[in-house]
Amino acid sequence: ADPCHDEGGAPRGCVPGLVNAALGREVLASSTCGRPANRACDASDPRRAHPATLLTSAGGTASPLCWRSDLLQRAPLNVTLTVPLGKAFELVFVSLRFCSTPPASAALLKSQDHGRSWTPLGFFSSHCGLDYGRLPAPADGPAGPGPEALCFPAPQTHPDGGGLLAFSVQDGSPPGLDLDNSPVLQDWVTATDIRILLTRPAMLEDARDDGEVTVPYSYSATELQVGGRCKCNGHASRCLLDTQGHLTCDCRHGTEGPDCSRCKPFYCDRPWQRATAQEAHACLACSCNGHARRCRFNMELYRLSGRRSGGVCLNCRHNTAGRHCHYCREGFYRDPGRALSDRRACRACDCHPVGAAGKTCNQTTGQCPCKDGVTGLTCNRCAPGFQQSRSPVAPCVKTP
């Protein structure tokens, strides 16, 4: 079964499955223990190392191996974890499991431009005003019409000493928004990279006034999950690695690009649109009767057609012309015995150089314009009652 087409072959909206987009991705940690080595951590010894790769490797959960930051003794106490997802994903949730006491404050950010700029998705703190200058998140979601980064309580410490930072995209979005029909929600859930800022250790409550932590502290975590769907705008049901090893949508519906966010070159009979559950909005191939390989979209023609067709064929071949290569170019006429899509659908007029008054024939009948007294499709004979003269200007004269 093809998720992107129904049983009759008609296109329908399709989306890749929900995956952990962070799985197997490299995590960039601003601080990792073991360089230089100490009693608890040695980056050069695999048995005693705690690299950031442990955050996104598919390790067992019974006895997790944990990433660990360097010991933090004085400000700044920030540690950043960054996960490039490789391409745009539509987020559903983000979670990070801590192996030791979770931080007292953290921020979750996303990038939509592969790390060039960042916007917050949420904050986590028991002192939202102090840490982030924000009010605690209202119980019923954001007050505004669109999604926004709210400040949620800091992760609780579990009985085993760890904790879980968990964020769902619904947490920052007002109820009732529908992904298919809400561009702001589509923007809100789209991310190419995820960044978690661990900004205040839980023990900072004990810190001295100069910012020095009384007990050396390190963040420790495992299992960073970024739940989401590869973003294909409703035009693919899966993402694959391309020849360069980049994750990219397996685009259908005449679309292309890493996110299926544009129409393929010949599929520009109407503007690109994201597919919805109700409508596939497939890109349509231009109608060029097989005589052109390229076309361009013309918005004016699209509007004039009642938003049905805006494609204009380029470089019509086989002596055809017109927006759809649907008629013959000057000097050629339609051969009624051949289909319009036939390479030889247009025949040369072949107007007689003396008998015809011009080189352009009727594009439908092939009739050349004949001089007085001349007849025939190509004007190559004198009409009945006329005979050939010696003058090329008046080749046929009345028979005396």
């Binding site: 007689h352 050939q388 003058s391 200007v393 080749p395």
Partner: peptide
């Protein structure tokens, strides 16, 4: 009645050299 095709050899191009088609 089917008339014969125009015979190019019969035309006198003396005064119309510039109109003479290339063969």
């Amino acid at each position: 009645e089917v008339m014969p095709t125009l015979d190019m050899a019969l035309f006198d191009w003396t005064d119309y050299e510039d109109l003479k088609p290339e063969v």
